[in-house]
């Protein structure tokens, strides 16, 4: 079954890097948003399973986006992807409901592990 994935980052390069780092052979339908507001607007009209969310963005940043998702109880799993590696940043996003934190520059292997850990991606070895 195809997983619907939304990648939200203000940088075009970061969006491409993120999309490229998704596990090979994972059937996904990838959509993109340039800031948190775009992401929220998309999430409201169609359902996504996973959101890869940057923190530092114009219009609506990652923290504010997480707040909206929580307040409006939007059904989506959020993985924060950021260069802000301060421990405080990681704690804050988890408190706001992100399931995990992935540091930039993104590493394909780490992303795969995180997706398996949360049962989003089934480990092909076990199938």
């Amino acid at each position: 079954m195809t997983t619907k994935v939304l990648i939200c980052d203000d940088s075009k390069m970061a969006r491409k890097q993120m999309a490229r780092a998704l596990p090979a052979g994972w059937p996904v339908d990838v959509h993109f948003a340039k800031d948190g507001q775009e992401a929220i607007d998309l999430i409201k009209v169609q359902s996504f399973e996973v959101l890869f969310l940057d923190l530092t963005m114009p219009v609506l940043d990652g923290y504010a986006t997480l707040e909206v998702i929580r307040q409006e109880d939007l059904p989506i799993m959020v993985l924060v992807v950021s260069g802000d590696i301060q421990p405080e940043a990681q704690e804050r996003v988890k408190k706001l409901g992100a399931i995990d934190f992935i540091k930039k520059p993104v590493d394909a292997e780490q992303i795969k592990q995180v997706l398996i850990e949360y049962g989003i991606l089934r480990d092909q070895a076990h199938e």
Partner: peptide
């Protein structure tokens, strides 16, 4: 691209 590279580097510096 420069902005994104800087974004990552300044995150490391901020940490």
């Amino acid at each position: 691209c420069y902005q994104e590279i800087t974004n990552v580097a300044m995150g490391q510096a901020a940490d």
